[in-house]
Design a protein around this nucleic acid. Structure first.
Lengths: 75, 75
DNA sequence: TTCTTAGGTAAATTATATATTACTTAGATA
DNA sequence: TATCTAAGTAATATATAATTTACCTAAGAA
């Protein structure tokens, strides 16, 4: 399951959904769905969001799934 | 412009396109286009690729654009 | 020669990210 | 009472990520 901290970092940057979404070139509705975790955004958009929030991909997006909690399970 | 090091890390892990793509649940064609930088994959797929290659998002994907080379230009 | 693997690519299709429009609630303010 | 901003959400439409099928080249092995 895809997790993210967009909302937390957006508020820390003093931005509204409207401001952040305009700043990265998407609609407020899209940003709302991303924050709620109901979207699987493209990496390009994720990078634009991260740069705007002065954060890195690793800090903002991650997968929270059993299969990924044990990195050596495959291979 | 979206850049990535998928091909480099895939080879370092001793994987063919076929093996990596099957391992993360996409087709070989999709992986080929991602490696060539002609796709803007979803963050979920990027994360699965990274975990499979034992790398982080920050190590594999980034934007190479003028507007993102100067982080303080906006705001 | 033939056969297999690895990889590039193109066309058509499907799935889904994103946009558009619009309605809603809640809080702050005049 | 308005009126404004912020945010959630739903329906429909559009753009594009990803699939499917198929063809190609190159290299190595039988």
């Amino acid at each position: 399951m895809l997790k993210n901290k967009v909302k937390v970092f957006r508020i820390k940057n003093g931005l509204s959904q409207k401001e952040l979404s305009f700043s990265v070139g998407v609609t407020r509705q899209t940003m709302s769905l991303i924050e709620k975790g109901e979207y699987n955004p493209t990496i390009n958009l994720c990078l634009r969001i991260c740069y705007r929030l002065h954060k890195t991909l690793n800090e903002v997006f991650w997968l929270d799934e059993e299969e990924f909690k044990h990195e050596e399970s495959q291979r």
